[in-house]
Design a binder for these strands. Structure first.
Length: 477
RNA sequence: GUCCCCAUCGUCUAGACGGCCCAGGACACAGGCCUUUCAAGCCUGAAACGGGGGUUCGAAUCCCCCUGGGGACGCCA
């Protein structure tokens, strides 16, 4: 049985997959999954100059990372279908719905400038619309232009923007085939969307105006139009269309800076779409609740801080095993080798509340693995002092006695010392923290001890003790 | 310049039928609480219906104008 819904994501491989493209893909996937339809991928690589296989690979990888690779085995490449588009174009020509245009780039450019100057809409003046046979006979190169009706209007229904109408008069005779014979975008999309059986075209708002031209083409070719949904653009903080100068815009950049794909997907979904007051959605929930009708009509400003917050939300709830898997590469970058096992999991657990990204976490986690603790000068100066020496020794003694050194046990070891020496927890915790981590900031001290493991904790305490002794035995300060 | 679209806190947004909205949530921000450090968490606060006309007993919600923003104007996609 034929699926009632069939969508596609059609990026052109002229750059990395960016946030906007990712959101378009996401909306397509959510809509399709909800309707148990089919989602296809089409690479629009007809611009041989700018298209690159490298970008195609990047797009595929990014979609995979985001978990949006629901397209099947077959990926359509427009560059391999050139002949098909030409056939459609030629058919239009034979039926008198398209004509040969011999105008040169210079002529067109001059005409455009003149029109702009005259406060008129810049569009093809129609020079060749009724034939220019003298040049035709000369065998000059020509482009094939679509003969746009001069009257009437073209209408279509847009699921997010509502009914749309354009006066045909405003539309120009656009090019179908370039003078080198290659097909142009508007022709290719129409032919492909038809041949691929696309029922819903969900794409960026920047294609909204093109849609009228495409609808005209569908009509001329005698094809039924699919349904359209144009999702609003994503803007930078300056309200300009998001671009490289707004910082990280590629999906890859977010992967590299330690974001979870779940968080990015969640954030992107909420940009332009909402479901009451809900902020956090699992993918399944999105599939269940997403509706194209609920997508807003106005462009949205990308807010990196909110994404960061969401990432932290996910950091706190994603299973440690998964975090470990994603964290390992970042640790490796920092020269830390570890196994994805209980020891790592325990350490991650102590860090997740205070790490917003995997990069932050990888920076934090280093102290657990370091061969030698390096004391921050100010920290050791302030906390590793002779006054605390005996208390630290006592603490070490207490810890040594414990067989299973978990948080609770560590806490008991501390209590004993505090009582014996009349210290407050802070008075002992800070020196211990410096001894174990090298700095004054870390997860809770009991957690650190438990996650670090007994032998390493004892070793570090001993080193701190020796450090204080060495300092104390020097000349008086 | 021409055409199209849009318009609620700094940002993302909630807001079916106009009264439940002197406008709710989230991020960020400020203050407080908690506290072994830093975070986190919790509580509180400041913060918006762009302006002007209508329609109506009553408008953030409907209509018009202005202003502002975005998109498109390629033999790019």
């Amino acid at each position: 049985m034929k699926s009632p819904v069939r969508t596609r994501f059609a990026p052109s491989p002229t750059g990395y997959l960016h946030i906007g493209g990712a959101r378009t893909a996401l909306f397509n996937v959510l809509f399709t999954l909800q309707h148990k339809g089919e989602f296809l991928l089409r690479i629009e690589d007809t611009d041989l100059e700018r298209s690159s296989e490298v970008y195609t690979q990047n797009i595929l990888e990014a979609l995979n990372w985001l978990g949006l690779d629901y397209y099947g085995e077959t990926i359509a490449h427009q560059s391999k279908r050139i002949e098909i588009y030409r056939e459609y174009a030629l058919r239009l020509f034979e039926e008198g719905k398209a004509y040969r245009c011999y105008c040169s780039q210079e002529e067109l450019e001059a005409a455009r400038k003149a029109q702009m100057k005259a406060r008129k809409p810049p569009k093809y003046p129609g020079t060749c619309r009724d034939g220019r046979s003298e040049r035709e006979l000369g065998g000059a190169p020509y482009a094939l232009r679509f003969k746009t009706p001069k009257e009437g209007e073209t209408t279509f229904e847009d699921i997010v923007k509502g009914p749309a109408r354009f006066a045909n008069e405003e539309l120009e005779d656009f090019v179908l085939l370039r003078s080198d014979g290659s097909p142009t975008y508007n022709l290719c999309v129409v032919v492909d969307d038809y041949e691929m059986g696309i029922t819903h075209v969900v794409r960026g708002d920047d294609h909204f105006v093109n849609t009228s031209k495409q609808v005209l083409l569908y009509g001329a070719l005698g094809l039924a139009t699919p349904k359209f949904a144009h999702v609003p653009m994503i803007l930078g903080a300056d309200r300009q269309r998001l671009s490289k100068r707004h910082g990280a815009t590629s999906v890859q950049a977010y992967k590299e800076t330690g974001y979870f794909p779940q968080a990015l997907v969640n954030y992107l979904a909420r940009l332009g779409w909402s479901h009451g007051d809900q902020e956090v959605f699992s993918f399944e929930e999105l599939v269940q609740k997403f509706r194209l009708e609920d997508v807003g009509k106005s462009p949205a400003v990308f807010n990196p801080q909110k994404l960061l917050w969401l990432n932290h939300v996910y950091m706190k709830s994603i299973p440690v095993q998964e975090i470990a898997g994603r964290l390992l590469p970042f640790m490796k970058e920092r020269g830390i080798e570890a196994d994805n096992g209980p020891e790592l999991w325990g350490r991650i657990d102590t860090l997740r509340e205070r790490s917003k990204t995997l990069v932050e976490m990888a920076d934090w986690i280093g102290f657990y693995y370091a061969q030698n603790v390096e004391y921050e000068p100010r920290a050791s100066e302030r906390y590793l002092r002779p006054e605390i020496l005996s208390a630290l020794e006592a603490l070490k003694e207490n810890l040594q006695q414990i067989e299973k050194l978990d948080e609770e046990a560590a806490k008991r070891a501390f209590s004993g010392v505090l009582e014996a020496y009349g210290l407050s927890l802070g008075e002992l915790a800070q020196p211990a923290r410096v001894a174990l981590t090298g700095g004054t900031v870390s997860p809770g001290i009991f957690e650190v001890i438990a996650a670090m493991g007994k032998s390493r904790a004892l070793k570090r305490l001993q080193e701190a003790i020796a450090f204080i002794r060495a300092k104390g035995s020097g000349p008086l300060d």
